[in-house]
Design a protein around this nucleic acid. Sequence first.
DNA 1: TATTGTTATACTCTATAACTATA
DNA 2: TATAGTTATAGAGTATAACAATA
Lengths: 165, 165
Amino acid sequence: MKKALASRTEAVDPTSSALGVLAQDPAMALRLAEITVFRDLAIAFRPFGLSPPEFAALKIIAENPALRMGELADLMMIRQPNLLAFISGLQKNGLIDRSRDSVDKRSFRLTLTAEGKVLLERADMAQTAYRERMAQHLGQDNLEQLTHLLMQLVSLRPLHPEFQP
Amino acid sequence: MKKALASRTEAVDPTSSALGVLAQDPAMALRLAEITVFRDLAIAFRPFGLSPPEFAALKIIAENPALRMGELADLMMIRQPNLLAFISGLQKNGLIDRSRDSVDKRSFRLTLTAEGKVLLERADMAQTAYRERMAQHLGQDNLEQLTHLLMQLVSLRPLHPEFQP
DNA sequence: TATTGTTATACTCTATAACTATA
DNA sequence: TATAGTTATAGAGTATAACAATA
């Protein structure tokens, strides 16, 4: 039926026919692509001491100065308590400032420090290089269409937004 | 510059302009789409007592009877020790059989039990329903192209496959 | 009374090294 | 010597509830 698959050290290729009909499933493809890209990006960002989510946070703060923490959590689609852990780390490393909002004293406003801006600029080059690698592999137009379709999926709001287990 | 963003309970929309240039980044789009889809799929599979990876494992085993555990781990792009945890669970719940390979006595061969086949068939309907929801949102052709592009990304082999931290 | 951010905590996922039994 | 699977374990990531300060 099928030739013996490759050994552990030379991994079975998930793009091979072994996945069968499942390779046509968008969710499966989404997960495998996510693993592929983020394993690689984690390595690409390591020289800068950043994880992919940390890079994303810096980038979003740069784009949206004086962002509140809750807003950042929403944009990254993670929970506030989970955001806090690595936001504290970024602050401790001197990459971001957290200052109380003068009018709403419950809120913090996030901005990049000068050091944060410099690091982001350097890490940004690694991200750009990786994006260009993807563009070479897929074609620039296809990569843009892929990104557009993914963001459209994000606006697929959950079936049960009020779900509580 | 920008209207005050929504409150915590009515989340800031990651597809809004607040993401800025980052919304054009394939990696960011990939992560947000993955979160969106798998949060929803986790709920869709809950009535069957399955997590999305458990469903995927059942589906892949159904497509590839007598699969070895290491091969399954490769196809799902997860590590063998991490696969083992939930494979044991599936076996304990009577959904899969693990039998020693008669020629290579180190290997196990995975197959679905009758019960596993029945459950998979039912869970498959939930997955199909969700895929149709995506198709309605994006258009059937776009969904297929999205899936195709994602699988092409998976074949983007890592820059440093030999990396050891 | 509701919201922002925090703490505590539990659960899952992920990654690696070291082991066994077979090859 | 190498591979299939296992165990143990450490580290992330994720989820919820409960709390203080502020609105």
